[in-house]
Design a protein around this nucleic acid. Structure first.
Lengths: 334, 334
DNA sequence: CTTGCATTCCAAAACGTTTTCAGGTACATT
DNA sequence: AATGTACCTGAAAACGTTTTGGAATGCAAG
C-alpha cells in the first residue's frame, strides 16, 4: 500500500527510469519533467524503499554496533554511551544508520555475530567491549566485513581500531600524584582480558620507574572494572599497605568504589589518601568529592570510529589504528 | 559474492523453491532432499539475505527506537539506558532488531521521523522523551505505523503507551516524608512539557491534602530535569522558605543537584533537610549519601513496550496503555 | 484402465528499486 | 540530404528471496 516509484511514474506520464533519475539528481532529465516529477512525488508523498534500493545496490547503508554484555544490572555502559553518541552523530552525517547488536543475545540465537551481520547485509560493524578471549573476536577481525574495534589494537585488511593512549594516560595520572608528593601509590587495575588494562599497568609502572620509584607488584590489585571491585581492591591494598597515600584506579567506577571504602574507613580524601580515576564519565563530576581523573575523549572515539569505518567501506582509506590522547582533569580527590 | 539461494539450489540439484521450503521448514519436501539441502547450505555457508526477504514479505523485522535530544553533554540517558536494554532484550527474543534513530539528527536531514521510518520500511517504532509540544508527536501517534510511546498517555488505533504510575509514585514519596514527621515539603518538578511532570505534581498535592496539609504553590519550583536545575531549585526554595525540612525532586538527577547545594550550604541530610528523588537510576545508590527515591521499573518498561508493539504489529493485540507501579526505596537521605 | 489423491517438486511471478543499453528527437554541421 | 551530436527518455535486466499454481509421479481405489 505504500506508494511506489511506479505510481509516481504513472502519475507523471513517464517511465520509472526517469523518475528514478529525477529523484536521484542525475542530470540527463529535462528540467520541466524533473520539476513535474518532484512535485508529483511530493504530492503522492512518495518515499523510496530503502530495502528495494539495498537489494539492487548491494549496500544497506546500515552498520552494526556490536556490544557485548549489554544487560540489566551493568553500568559500565555509562562509559559507552558517549561513544555511541559519537558514532551515531557522525554516521547520521554520512548518511548511515545504526543497528544495535547485543552479542549476548545473538549468542542465544545460536548464530555468530558475523552470521548475523551477513544475514542483514550490514555494510560494516563497530565492536566494543569484546574481551580478548572472546571466541568470535578473530572471526570478526579477519572477516571481509569492514570493521573497527574499540580499545583492542588489532589491524587487518578489513579491520581498524580506535583507542586512547592508555600508557600515556596512566603516566599522566601517576606523574600527577608524584608531583603532589606521593611515593607509595597503589594501582587498582581492571581484568586482564581488556587490552587497556595492560597499557595502564605499563604506564603506571613506567611513570614510577622514570621517577626513580621502584615498581612493587604487591601494590597492584587486579579487579574487574566494577564499583564493588574497586571498593574491595582499595580496601585490600590499604590494609596490606597502610603507608600508601594514593591510589590510581583504572576506571572511574572503580575509583568511586574506592571512595566508598575510604569514606567508610574514615580516611580523608585527598589529605590522607589521594584518588585518581580513569575515563571521566559524567559521574566523576557529580560524585562528591569530585573525582580527579584521566579524560578519554569518548565522543571523539565514537566519531572517529564511524569515520574510519565509512572511509574503509567506501574504499577511500586503508584500515589503520588511531590513538587519541587522554588528558588529566584535576578535581577534588588529589 | 555472498552465496545465494541459487547457488545452494544448483549444488543440490533442485529448484530454489525447494531450497526455500526446506530451509523454512515447510513440509512438502522429501526428507532425504531436505537433509541434503541443509547439509549443502551449511557447507556453502549460506545466509539468506534479510533484505531480499524483506522486499517480498514486506516486513523488515526491524523496529525503530526514536529518541530525542541524544547529544553530547546530556546525561538524562542514564535513565533511558535500562529501558533500552529491556526493549532490546525482548525484541531479540521475538526475533526483531533495533535501529537507533536520533530525532535531532533526522531533523537535520530535513525529514520527519515518520518519513525516515517509511523509507526504511520499519515495522514499528518506540518513542521516548518526546516533548508534548514536539511538532511531529501527533504525526507519529496518528500514523498507520504501529508505535508505542513511553511516558506519554496517548492511545490511538495504532499507538499504545507504557508509563509508570507517577501520581502514585509521588504519593509514595510524600507520604513517606510525612510519615517521617515533615510538614513543610518542597517540590522541585521537571519542565511542563513532560506528561510525567503533571502527574508527579498531582501526586505531591493530593498526598499533602489527604493528610490535611494545605498545598502551597510557592513551595513548588519548576526546573528542567537537570542536575543544575535541581541545585538551583533547591537553593531558591530553601532561601525563600527556611522552615522547609524536606524536598521531593521529580528526578534523581535533580535530587543530586539538590544534594550538591545542601552540602555547600552546610545543611545536614537528612537531619536538617530530607531529600527524595524519582527514578532510581544507578547513581542514586552510588552517590553519597545514598538517595532515597522512587524506583521506576525501567527494564520492565522497555520489555513491556517491546512486547506491546510486537503484539500490535502481528495483529494479536489492540493498542492500549500500560501503567507500571513504582516503589519506594529508602536509603540515606530521608 | 481410469480416477482420485498424496507426495514431492518446479517455473514463474512478485516485491521496488537502479542501471545498462539503446532509441528517439532536434538541431547544427558537412 | 546525409551525418554527427547533444539531449532526453524508456524497455528490460538485475538484485535474492517467498509464494502461487500447477505438474509429475506413484499408488490405491473404483
Amino acid at each position: 500500500m505504500p506508494v511506489t516509484i511506479r505510481d509516481v511514474a504513472r502519475a507523471a506520464g513517464v517511465s520509472i527510469t526517469t523518475v528514478s533519475r529525477a529523484l536521484n539528481g542525475h542530470k540527463d532529465v529535462g528540467e520541466k519533467t524533473r520539476q513535474r516529477i518532484l512535485r508529483i512525488a511530493e504530492e503522492l508523498n512518495y518515499r523510496p524503499s530503502a530495502v528495494a534500493r539495498s537489494l539492487v545496490t548491494q549496500k544497506t547503508r546500515t552498520i552494526g554496533f556490536l556490544v557485548s554484555d549489554l544487560s540489566k544490572g551493568r553500568i559500565w555502559h555509562y562509559f559507552m554511551l558517549q561513544i555511541l553518541y559519537g558514532i551515531q552523530d557522525r554516521l547520521a552525517e554520512l548518511g548511515y544508520d545504526l543497528i544495535l547488536v547485543n552479542t549476548t543475545t545473538t549468542r542465544q540465537r545460536e548464530i555468530s555475530y558475523l552470521d548475523f551481520c551477513t544475514e542483514r547485509r550490514l555494510d560494516g560493524v563497530i565492536v566494543i567491549n569484546l574481551r580478548l578471549d572472546d571466541p568470535y573476536l578473530h572471526e570478526v577481525v579477519e572477516s571481509p566485513l569492514p570493521s573497527v574495534v574499540i580499545d583492542i589494537p588489532l589491524v587487518s585488511a578489513t579491520c581498524g581500531y580506535v583507542t586512547s593512549d592508555n600508557v600515556y594516560g596512566a603516566k599522566l595520572a601517576v606523574r600527577h600524584l608524584i608531583g603532589k608528593g606521593h611515593r607509595t601509590i597503589g594501582f587498582v587495575n581492571g581484568h586482564s582480558q581488556a587490552a587497556v588494562s595492560h597499557d595502564r599497568l605499563r604506564g603506571y609502572r613506567e611513570a614510577l620507574e622514570s621517577h626513580g620509584i621502584p615498581f612493587r607488584p604487591e601494590l597492584v590489585y587486579e579487579a574487574d572494572y566494577t564499583v564493588e571491585g574497586g571498593r574491595k581492591g582499595c580496601e585490600l591494598l590499604r590494609t596490606a599497605h597502610p603507608e600508601m597515600t594514593a591510589v590510581f584506579f583504572a576506571s572511574d567506577l572503580m575509583a568511586i568504589g574506592g571512595l566508598h571504602h575510604l569514606r567508610e574507613a574514615g580516611v580523608k580524601v585527598p589529605e590522607e589518601c589521594a584518588v585518581v580515576g580513569f575515563d571521566d564519565i559524567e559521574l566523576a563530576e557529580i560524585v562528591s568529592p569530585q573525582l580527579t581523573t584521566i579524560r578519554q575523549k569518548r565522543y571523539e572515539m565514537g566519531a572517529t570510529a564511524a569515520e574510519m569505518l565509512v572511509g574503509m567501506m567506501e574504499g577511500k582509506t586503508m584500515p589503520e589504528g588511531r590513538t587519541l590522547l587522554p588528558e588529566l582533569v584535576v578535581r577534588q580527590t588529589s
